[in-house]
Design a protein around this nucleic acid. Structure first.
Lengths: 363, 363
DNA sequence: CGTTTTTTGATAGACGTCTATCATTTTGAT
DNA sequence: ATCAAAATGATAGACGTCTATCAAAAAACG
């Protein structure tokens, strides 16, 4: 038998189509007895509303707004680019995606942008959250207006959003610990230097804690450098630290500023092997693990300056975020657990292809 | 302005809706002049057919058949389970997915199943291919019947399928090489034992070649064990090999039979540290890398018997395969490059959550 | 020019749902 | 039993596309 329609349900329940419709879209004004019979018929027939037909009828288009921090060529630039690549595809699925760039770390601006979107009547919001009362309050207002809210990459309290999509940063740090332990398998000891943007940043702190949790018992871990995510500062501080601690066997760069990391490593290696021609002949002894796969870190992986990159897989995060928004704004269930992305680990040879302009062309 | 409809196109082209429709669905019987004008209008307005409305009207349902080898509780069982979990979701998207299990490595059976599906009028096929002339011929027949064919996990010649979805096994082997090198960073030498199912199997051979390519120059690599993917044989052979080569520093299990691997390792460790209580105190010196994330390999990762698992991410593969089928059977472009999945590397702490029954519930 | 062919237009009904309206029936309270 | 309120039924038009049919117009042909 073919898929049942609402007409079938109405017939089975012994009511008119209109009544079945009233129940399905709970418009009220239905006697409980009738309502129950319709519900029963729905369950019995295994009826599922044809969402495409419904959307066609309502002329419904979903409007999803993404509020991302303005990119300085790093991770968020890549994220924005990947989002842009998905726009045409989702346009065909009746989903209009708008990308709004905001000054980074500006909580009032973010809060205001959220309010604006809600007033404008978006169907869903995706936000890189800041752990700030203004933002939380704005998110609560959005939720109060029944707008699904996804926090992306950075979370807030669970009450202020429908779901979080991103990696568990503690897990990422633990994974770095796994890698460090593996790379120190053959050595006696080990001295790890964590490099972070700021100890204030929740995600950085979590990563650092994860590293300690896993590698701490076995390896010695230095006080982390705090670079404020500035490439130049990173380079300076790292150079100094490498001089001061010649015994360093591993570096874990868990913040931004990969170019600075590379510059410092480059310089350090050059100093260590002044007249050596081939890179292959003397591989760096230090183990270098960094976060976020981007052009500089790809290059460093390939040249051997970095050994492994832990990536949060922005493409996958966007897909999950969009999926969550779609389902939530259709009032379908979305398992918040499926928003947690497993960090990917990349080495020299399992680099994903550079994302093309779009996953596919249009037509 | 709202999204243009075919009516708009017809108006812009100065023809009737009927003519525009004839052009769009090229039914023929249209003068070239009119056809050109319609095409121009389509391009100019940026018209895109509303596929959902079209499908609604045609009562179209996609029928996609998946031909998978019968699972013996390993990788293909997981694949089948994940596919089953996706069925209800795609049912709502007008996609009827049928899973057909076939005896493993039976080329004639596979070829016949393919023919049957084509005769039955499937809209798309997804096949774990065998490199056999019968299979290739059947696939060519399918393609001749304009049925999109995706090869999953195992490929054939490019001519016989629309796209391949799966990992590049050479890449996977290279990644194992990366890991081995990393784990041997602190040691003088290294002796690696590859364990494979059969040197005949293309995927196994590729993985082995990748390992040699990357780790070969630096580490010594033994002749691979060939276990025919049998857990018991694997255990036997591995135990023997470990006795014969006490200097082994790394094992790369690139085939099936993880339980056998675990058993052999367990036994070996017990023999090595007879009266030692705590596992933490003396971590195994050998580096063990295996393929395919499944219950046994998860357990072994967590207990520390295995250090890393290279996984081909069956869930992602299925998603890509379904995407490819959808697009191809709508005559939309699909970039074959996007079918190549980057192998994921898992350690003790970045294990993905066990896939639930379905990515989400239904309703 | 008349006749056949080709091309075009007009239109109706379907797909499954939504929204709205109006008439009718049932219920509950008085 | 009376009357208002609540519940239900019937139905029509829309959403954007597909399919089909029939008549009308245009082109090609001898």
């Amino acid at each position: 038998m073919r898929k049942p329609t609402l007409h079938d349900v109405a017939a089975a329940a012994g009511v008119s189509y209109a009544t079945a419709d009233r129940v399905l879209n709970n418009r009220g004004g239905v006697a409980k007895k009738s309502s129950d019979r319709v519900q029963a018929a729905i369950a019995q027939l295994g009826y599922h509303r044809d969402i495409t037909a419904a959307n066609l009828s309502r002329k419904r288009r979903y409007r999803f707004d993404f509020l991302l921090p303005e990119a300085r060529g790093g991770f968020f630039a890549a994220l924005a680019a990947q989002l842009a690549a998905r726009v045409p595809q989702h346009r065909q699925l009746r989903q209009d995606i708008t990308l709004r760039l905001l000054p980074a770390f500006d909580a009032p601006a973010l809060a205001q942008a959220i309010d604006t979107c809600v007033v404008d009547g978006v169907d869903g919001l995706c936000v890189v959250a800041l752990d700030h009362p203004d933002v939380t309050a704005a998110l609560m207002r959005a939720r109060a207006a029944a707008v699904p809210v996804i926090t992306l990459v950075a979370d807030t309290g669970a009450a202020a959003r429908s779901a979080y999509v991103g990696i568990d940063n503690r897990t990422a740090g633990r994974t770095a610990g796994d890698l460090m332990l593996l790379a120190h398998r053959g050595r006696a000891g080990g001295l790890i230097l964590p490099v972070m943007g700021s100890a204030q940043a929740r995600d950085h702190a979590d990563r650092c804690a994860g590293l300690h949790e896993v590698a701490g018992p076995t390896l010695e871990i230095l006080e982390p450098l705090e670079t404020a995510d500035d490439a130049d500062r990173l380079q300076q501080m790292l150079a100094t630290a490498l001089q001061r601690h010649p015994g360093i066997t591993g570096i874990y760069n868990l913040g931004a500023g990969v170019p600075g990391l590379i510059a410092a490593l480059d310089q350090h290696h050059r100093a260590a092997t002044p007249a050596q021609g081939s890179d292959n002949a003397s591989p760096p002894r230090m183990v270098v693990i960094s976060h976020e796969l981007c052009a500089p870190s790809r290059g460093a992986l390939q040249s051997g300056l970095i050994d492994a990159v832990i990536d949060q897989n922005p493409g996958r995060e966007l897909d999950q975020a969009l999926r969550a928004l779609t389902r939530l704004s259709d009032a379908q269930p979305f398992d918040p657990a499926s928003g947690v992305i497993t960090p990917a680990v990349h080495f020299k040879h399992n680099l994903p292809p550079l994302p093309a302009d779009g996953p596919d062309g249009d037509t």
